[in-house]
Amino acid sequence: MRRRSLARAGLGTLVLGAALAAWPAPRGQADPEAPPEVLAESPSAGDGWAEGGVEACLECHDETEAKPIGAILQTRHATRGDRRTPFASERGCQSCHGRSGAHVKKPADGEARAPTEIRFGPKAPPEVQNAPCLSCHQGGERMHWKGSAHDANQVACASCHPMHVAEDPMLQPAAERPETWRRAQADACFQCHPQQRAQIHRISSHPLKEGQMRCSDCHNSHGSMGDFLLARQNVNETCYGCHAEKRGPFLWEHAPAREDCGICHEAHGSNHPTLLRTRGPRLCQQCHQAAFHPSTAYTAGGLPGPTPADQLLLRNCMNCHPEVHGSNHPSGPRFTR
């Protein structure tokens, strides 16, 4: 019953979306019947703005440059019919780069060309670079940017998001380049997080190196309500997004699993099976020291030989106690059911 209800809800969501497509256009979309709206005063040379729109910039920054910029015109930023976008106004490139009236003027002999008002890259302060971006992108996933870890560490938007490309690699779907397993988004993160770059190559890992997951599947790098820039409220809620079978609640709970998956698992990669930080039985014996086998020392004598120990080999404790995330069986308090 619930399956059908939810499927209907999902289908209804899509139908509603299609139906709402007939909603009258809000202010972002121009009415083609109405005269063109003047969104901003045309720049005039007197106030420092350059005239001529994007064409003026492309006079010099054309496709013969070593780093051409024209590809931005393929992006959502360059959609003149959407009045919210930088290229909807005559300021064009100056919407982000600031006043460029001095920059377009030919410099005097021997003098360097004046820079634009706002510059991007390692030479410019992050808060100056980020201001144009945040003037439009302060809500949604960027709502908690200010004061977040990346903001506090002076990361600029342009450090991760190149604008003058046809598609922002941070937004590219996983498996963009399957034969080389290039991971556009992850590679950008690894420039500052090299430890995680090594961890994803361990014997047990999430499918990051295969390009089937992205860092943003778990983290919101722009700031979040949770700890560790997690996309959801806490570690467990983030994990349950893909591992809902672990959510319970269970009749017999395993306290560390209910509290924080990270107590036992290293999500970025581990040398041990199923992303465990340490292998059993020692991982389990860090919390379980009851009489008889839980407190026994499992030495090398338990290796394959005359006296192999089933608490040491293969799945170790889970050879008998498989339901370590919790059990809903009435006879399962020892996680054997």
Binding site: L14, G17, A18, L20, A21, W23, A25, P26, G28, Q29, R76, T79, G81, D82, R83, R84, T85, P173, A174, A175, E176, P178, E210, Q212
Partner: peptide, 26 residues
């Protein structure tokens, strides 16, 4: 768009929108 179409790790996506008005995807 579609990737890895010959593999069990295939993915497909369809998007249509009028920017500034609506977007739909599957």
């Amino acid at each position: 768009s579609g990737y890895n179409l010959g593999l069990d790790s295939r993915s497909l996506r369809a998007e249509y929108g009028q920017q500034g008005r609506f977007d739909v995807f599957a």
